[in-house]
């Protein structure tokens, strides 16, 4: 197996369960992410998505297993790995702009003040924040605007890997749609490698190159790696028309509703997720009366 830009190898997390035993959240999670990719991870609550995220961010240590980025062992938080937290985590005593410059000065300590401000303002503008709004405190901004600031802060730092922990979880559907589009725009401008947690299937299909599916915890595993065979640029309205859209969506729904529970707890040693590639575009104009095509599961 060729070394990926980011490789997660046999990651296991156990906690004491309070009765002297151990509780395994997930076991032997092994997968890789390539440079410039946008990867989403989907799974039910409790499967350890956030734990994986915290380990990647360096905020917590796994029980065993390693994370390597660019061939180097990851330990502790670093400016190379930017994080967008679900609850924005903006510093409430700083204005939106100051929140971004806070990150930029940490990342580029040798830059002079004017350059820091220019860089920060540019990234705020990329997510649609301009004018007066950037001088407001987070408490004076709406939830959507706060998350925009948080995204701008993360992108402005130009980390090698960007981690998004359910960034749109607390937003209403309309705001979520707009910011998702802005996220795609910033991402395609910058060639960031992005790893994102979500439990919104449509969001994952819209944004990701690949979706990692996790089985239910405890003893959760990364079971499948679903490639999103819908060409970019993707627009929310148009992708539903794409022949692959519902096939992929149904596969994901089916997994989360049924198979995530069935597969749960079955550990068979170090395992990579099965790659699933659903592509109906070639067969789209064949006979409609045929049974729906079977999913192709390919071992990597």
């Amino acid at each position: 197996m060729a070394k990926s830009f980011l490789s997660i190898e046999q990651l296991t997390q156990r906690y004491p369960d309070g009765q002297g035993n151990e509780f395994t959240v997930f076991e032997d999670a092994t997968f890789g992410i390539e440079k410039g990719e946008f990867v989403c991870i989907l799974g039910h609550s409790g499967c350890g998505k956030s734990t994986i995220m915290n380990i990647l961010a360096g905020l917590s240590e796994p029980t065993s297993g390693v994370v390597k980025m660019d061939g180097r062992h990851v330990s502790g938080p670093s400016l190379d790995r930017g994080v967008v937290f679900q609850n924005y985590s903006l510093l409430p005593w700083l204005s939106a702009l100051k929140n971004v410059t806070f990150g930029v000065t940490a990342r580029f300590p040798h830059w002079d003040k004017a350059k820091v401000i220019e860089h920060s303002t540019a990234f705020l503008a990329k997510v649609g924040l301009t004018g007066d709004a950037i001088h407001r405190k987070p408490s004076q901004l709406s939830g959507g605007m706060r998350q925009r600031v948080s995204i701008a802060r993360a992108f402005a730092n130009e980390p090698k890997l960007l981690l998004l922990d359910e960034p749109f979880g607390a937003l209403d559907a309309l705001t979520r749609g707009t910011i998702q589009e802005e996220l795609i725009k910033v991402w395609s401008d910058t060639d960031q490698t992005v790893f994102m947690i979500t439990h919104d299937i449509d969001e994952a299909i819209l944004l990701a190159d690949r979706i990692l599916l996790m089985t239910n915890g405890p003893m959760a595993q990364v079971a499948e790696n679903v490639e999103i065979t819908i060409p970019r640029p993707r627009v929310r309205n148009d992708i539903v028309e794409h022949p692959n859209y519902y096939a992929i969506r149904n596969h994901l729904v089916h997994f989360l509703a049924q198979r995530s529970a069935e597969l749960s707890g079955k550990s068979d040693g170090p395992n990579s997720p099965k790659t699933v590639c659903i592509d109906l575009t070639g067969e789209a104009d064949t006979d409609d009366s045929e049974p729906p095509p079977l999913l192709r599961a390919v071992e990597v």
Binding site: L59, G82, V83, F85, G103, R107
Partner: peptide, 12 residues
Amino acid sequence: EDWVNVARTHEL
């Protein structure tokens, strides 16, 4: 904790 994590991820 979030704010402390912000500081940590910015290597302060």
